[in-house]
Design a protein around this nucleic acid. Structure first.
Lengths: 337, 337
DNA sequence: AAGAAAAATGTAATGGATTACATTTTGCAC
DNA sequence: GTGCAAAATGTAATCCATTACATTTTTCTT
């Protein structure tokens, strides 16, 4: 690999001149610039960006911690991140963490070792815990999608409570009174907020909350299927199932079909996220659309602003949701609309 | 950020001793090592890996070019890559290329500028084209999944022809004679190989090839739906549709349902990839399972071997497939098994 | 206890680009 | 043509860790 010294030697100028000819062309005479460019071409010189980054102390790399890439919602978030990062001259170091804290911490260390300038975490866990830090410094981190209140850093999130409230209300208006919820992991803030919205809507409609209608899941197809089986085996089964993501809703759909139940005539099903498959399930899924790509691009923008010192107090960005009505929700059995 | 000099000063030793105390502890006396470690702890010293990488000339970063992360097959491939790379001390720089050549070339440049040691391309395009290179040097690149014959580099692929042959044979054995194929992009080697396998199976069974049964798609749900509509509108519609991926198959399923056709009684549908949703469609999809994670981990292993000089001639790894029979394929109408 | 070998530690070069500061060249006014 | 300001270019320090080579200290042998 050619270095700047070889270019300088060939062009018969100093390395400083070569550097200037490339970085600030106007600071160099036309004649010299031409000589330098010719030498660059002849040697095939490409600046060693590792050296540049090392010297500048800026890596222009961002670590991204994703619980699972194999989740279409996150896949869209990553797409948004990539776009935004590329536009701003940053690269993404991706880590598929499988929600493994050790793995997350291992990647967070890249920030301390100057391999990355900042980190985006899509899960409610502070990957810097344990890595003793200058406690006064703000963490070079953005928390998006699933947000941990405790971390003091910029966040990007949906008003999950309001979204769950909206969906529950939609089901209530269709006459449903026994509305089940297939939740995410119990300790997730996502679950907490959505359950809160669900409860609030029930309360306002004067419907008693029934703990047995809350079934745990883990966002996978299989967990949705299993949870649906459990719910329909209740002495008084629900007439509607609100799932915390579309995968679980699609799992539930299959279970209902196996039980010989029709959706939405016998049971309504709703999802969350509006992944591409939601429109192609049978029946197509009523769901909450999230601006996934925007989550990604916003998180990246915030992080870069933070890193480059353009951010004051840690902002909290709330993105809008949209209730998409499709065919999987309908009037409760026996309910006249 | 503390540097090795501050640690050295605090421990009252030279920087060389600090470096050795950390890298080769046995080369330093117990007493000194203890002093150094105490100083490291007190200062919170973390080596600047950017400096290490710069000096060593190895970035330990790998660029990964993915057409779309929002494709569950690729998501699984990435998962495999991440695992393998992390195990070997490498990091992944992810680029969601949207099959945009300029974007691919822009990321390929990271290899030339020493920001990455190598690159994995999941598409049939050489991202180094145009970036004039030392022509004698082997490209530090691995081509996986969709492989371009022209590139002389290690490859990881499925025997797509054999897989398509197997699926076509499966359909033929069920008595189907008019078997349609929803293809990928026309110029893709994937498409070429799978069509070849399809044709070969037909030929061996003595079934005439009918060009009109080949419908183009782009691997999306929508394209599968559209293609299915076109196929069923033929004067002599197919009794089976073999789709080049599961997304298109699921799109086709929806279209058939809208047309009032039953699967598999009226039309059989088969997919390719065995994504998680394949088992949850209605009916569950017969498909070709690919070891997606293994594609990723193998590609990473090969690339690292290549980079570290442990590879002789560019190997060509062929991974096995598996035909998964589910409920979406059945006997052709009127056929007695 | 002297001397040699081994162990421990230190000094300084190295990697490649940028840039503060120093020096030379050019351009222009009078 | 002299003198001065501006432009162009050069010299060398810098970023941080590693490591070849040099030097000092310790250990062991006889």
């Amino acid at each position: 690999m050619a270095t700047i010294h070889q270019v300088a030697a060939l062009a018969e100028v100093s390395v400083a001149t070569v550097s200037r000819a490339l970085q600030q062309p106007e600071r160099v005479s036309d004649k010299t610039r031409a000589r330098v460019l010719a030498a660059v071409k002849q040697t095939g010189y490409k600046p060693n960006l590792m050296a540049v980054k090392f010297r500048s102390g800026k890596s222009r790399n961002l670590v991204v911690l994703v619980p699972t890439v194999a989740n279409l919602f996150f896949a869209r978030v990553i797409t948004g991140m990539q776009q935004s990062a590329h536009d701003k001259g940053y690269s993404l170091l991706l880590c598929n963490t499988m929600a493994n804290e050790a793995m997350e911490q291992s990647y967070a260390r890249m920030v301390h070792t100057s391999q990355a300038d900042g980190l985006i975490q899509l899960r409610a866990f502070n990957p810097f815990t344990g890595l003793e830090m200058a406690a006064d410094q703000p963490l070079p981190m953005v928390n998006a999608c699933e947000v941990l209140d405790r971390i003091r850093c910029p966040t990007v999130l949906l008003d999950n409570k309001a979204a769950a409230y909206a969906m529950t209300e939609h089901l209530l208006q269709l006459g449903h009174r026994r509305i089940a919820m297939i939740k995410g992991p119990p300790r997730s803030p996502l679950t907490r907020d959505r359950v809160a919205g669900y409860k609030e809507a029930l309360a306002e409609a004067g419907v008693d909350f029934d703990e047995s209608l809350l079934s745990p899941g883990n966002f996978s197809l299989a967990s949705g299927q299993k949870a649906a089986a459990g719910l329909m085996a209740l002495p008084e089964p629900p007439t509607a199932i609100f799932c915390e993501n579309d995968e679980m809703a699609i799992g539930a759909l299959q279970q209902l079909k196996q039980l010989g139940l029709r959706v939405p005539q016998d049971v309504s099903v709703a999802g969350f996220d509006d992944i591409a498959f939601a429109a192609y399930s049978d029946p197509p899924l009523t769901t909450i659309a999230q601006p996934a790509e925007e989550f990604g691009s916003t998180a990246v923008s915030l992080l870069i602003d933070l890193i480059e010192g353009r951010l004051g107090k840690a902002p909290k960005v709330i993105l809008p949701f949209d209730l998409i009505e499709r065919a999987s929700t309908g009037p409760a059995p026996g309910h006249l609309t």
